[in-house]
Simulated assay, not measured.
Amino acid sequence: MMLQKRFDQVFEIMKQSFPEAEYREYSEQKKLMSSSRYLLLTEENEQNEVIGFLAGWELESFRYVEHLAVSPNIRGGGIGKRLMDRFMKQSAKPVILEVELPEDEMKRRRIGFYERLGFCLGDHSYIQPPLRAVRQQTLSLQIMSYPAKLTTTEFEMVRKLLYKEVYGAPSVYAHTYNS
């Protein structure tokens, strides 16, 4: 499938699946496609249309899942689990992801999905830096890790690397959000 069409389909699912604050603007998201560390796994239907995707990062000491989403009308059919399994089996490195705080049923179900895959919910407070220049507010999230829960030292290393590599946040910025 043409890369442009595939990217557009991924971006459309992203827009349907996440609040605007949780993904980059189109041009910024598309720029990531040229990074060797940015990974995009997709699942297509018989018509070669993207119906699910996992966007992640290959970092020095771990892999990071930035987005996992399935077309809203076909969720619950195992596509997300298949994408996560593929991503987790591609490397022996630990896998890290961010989840929203378990404040409602949907967010608790999402955490449960990852726990069933072997992820551990961390207890360190974590702030996601803004992904959009126009959005100045930050987002309180929690880190989940596989195959084991992060120690405080590991968590600090993960946070520092995510802030630098994924969010492009200067080190001064990282200190602003220390818990």
Rank of each mutant, 00 (worst) to 15 (best):
A148F: 14
Q4N: 13
Q128G: 04
A92N: 03
N178W: 06
F18I: 11
L32D: 05
E49W: 04
V65Q: 02
S145T: 01
T42A: 11
R159S: 00
K107G: 01
L141T: 10
M33F: 15
P129K: 08
H124K: 10
E105M: 08
A69P: 00
E43L: 10
F119A: 05
Y163N: 13
I13P: 05
V50T: 09
L40T: 14
D104L: 03
R135N: 12
L101I: 06
Q4F: 13
G76E: 07
R37V: 12
L141F: 13
L3H: 04
W57T: 05
K160T: 13
S17L: 08
V172L: 10
M88I: 02
G122V: 04
G78R: 10
K89H: 13
V158Y: 02
I96L: 07
S171N: 09
G112C: 05
S61E: 12
R37S: 15
L121G: 05
S140V: 01
M14K: 15
L162S: 04
T42V: 15
E60A: 10
Y167D: 08
R6E: 12
T42E: 14
L117G: 05
L39K: 15
Y26S: 12
V10F: 06
A133E: 11
T152R: 09
I13Q: 04
L59K: 03
R82P: 01
H124C: 05
K149T: 03
V50I: 12
P72H: 01
P170M: 10
S71T: 08
D104E: 11
A174P: 00
F7Y: 00
R24W: 02
D8E: 11
A69Y: 06
K149Y: 03
M106K: 14
P19F: 09
I79G: 01
E98P: 10
A133D: 13
Y146L: 08
L83T: 00
L39H: 14
G122Q: 11
S91K: 02
S35Y: 13
K89Q: 02
M33A: 09
V50S: 00
G118L: 02
Y38G: 00
R24L: 11
E12F: 12
M88T: 03
L131W: 03
Y64F: 09
E44Q: 13
F62M: 05
E28S: 14
V99W: 15
E20D: 15
G80R: 08
Y167I: 01
S171K: 07
L68N: 04
L139I: 13
Q136A: 06
L97C: 11
K5Y: 13
Y38T: 03
E105P: 05
I51P: 02
S17V: 08
E28V: 11
L121P: 12
I96R: 01
L97P: 00
Y26F: 15
Y126I: 12
L3C: 04
L54I: 02
E103K: 11
E44V: 14
E44L: 14
V50R: 07
P129T: 10
Q4A: 07
I127F: 06
K89E: 07
K31C: 02
Q128S: 03
M157T: 14
I127Y: 04
E103V: 10
F7D: 01
K31N: 10
R82L: 12
S145G: 07
L68M: 05
T176D: 06
E98R: 07
